[in-house]
């Protein structure tokens, strides 16, 4: 019998997972294990973090040290771990709610500080675990369980938010572009500084059923794909034409000093 080579990354006794059939979170779990495999990452050196939500459960299936179970505070945990033990590699798996709704303040400050952590945001465009409520990432006018007449709020662009706040690696893909997603996760894991990879993923159970009227994962993936454009295509559109589109690509890849704490440890004096 052949054992899946990714199985070594999955916690013994950890399966079955609890994701719905057709959920994007399972795919992102696989992207991460593939990226880790291709980079030959030492699992003993990794701490994976999830807050609360569907994507937040990804780390509990990984055979690494894990922090889990509080909504929105993933990056605050990561900050404590990285400053106390900088040699550890810390990877955060967050849904859009964890990352930019309840955790939005921590998100912009981690970016500002250039905290040396990789954050993989599984943006399924709604609060899925709680039953499909509107999120700060839900497209304008979408029907959700708390926007029965359509959402009246404009959504965040997570990548632009990360870039503006100071993240040093930022990319966005969808499960329609798995190889590119894996490549960006590899780049993020190898990057020194705050790296954000957003995967706009399908939630057929809630977003699919309420917002697009189909619980079929393939329909929702197609819906996402129809709205996806490349970074280059986006450059030739004006802002109104870009509205409602998912711009895919690598947006930032730079370097600057990483966060080591609020006070400096060396004093530089002007001559």
């Amino acid at each position: 019998m052949t054992i899946n080579p990714m199985r070594k990354y999955v916690r013994p006794h950890g399966l079955p997972h609890f994701f719905c059939p057709g959920c994007g979170a399972g795919q992102v779990l696989q992207y991460f294990t593939r990226a880790a495999h291709e980079l030959s990452l030492n699992l003993d050196n990794i701490v994976a973090i999830g807050g609360v939500g569907c994507a937040a459960r990804i780390p509990i299936y990984l055979n690494v040290d894990v922090l889990h179970g509080v909504h929105g505070r993933t990056l605050a945990w990561a900050m404590g771990i990285k400053l106390a033990k900088p040699e550890l590699k810390v990877v955060v798996f967050a849904g859009d709610g964890d990352a930019v709704s309840i955790g939005g303040n921590h998100f912009i400050h981690a970016a500002r500080r250039n905290l040396d952590v990789t954050m993989i945001v599984v943006n399924n465009l709604n609060f899925a675990m709680t039953g499909g409520q509107v999120a700060p990432t839900t497209p304008y006018s979408s029907v959700t369980t708390t926007t029965p007449y359509g959402s009246g709020e404009p959504p965040f662009d997570i990548c632009r938010l990360a870039e503006t706040a100071g993240a040093t690696y930022v990319a966005r893909w969808t499960p329609n572009k798995p190889l590119q997603a894996i490549r960006s996760i590899k780049t993020a894991l190898s990057h020194k500084g705050f790296s954000v990879v957003e995967i706009v993923a399908q939630c057929p159970t809630h977003f699919g059923r309420y917002a697009i009227g189909s619980g079929n994962p393939a329909d929702l993936l197609k819906w996402i794909d129809e709205r996806s454009i490349t970074k280059v295509q986006a450059e030739s559109l004006d802002p109104s034409e870009r509205e409602g589109k998912f711009v895919l690509g690598e947006f930032v890849n730079t370097e600057r000093p990483v966060y080591r704490g609020t006070t400096r440890y060396e004093v530089e004096r002007a001559e």
Partner: peptide, 9 residues
């Protein structure tokens, strides 16, 4: 939460 992370580390 930074305390929690640092403590576990």
């Amino acid at each position: 939460y930074a305390l929690a992370g640092a403590s576990l580390a």
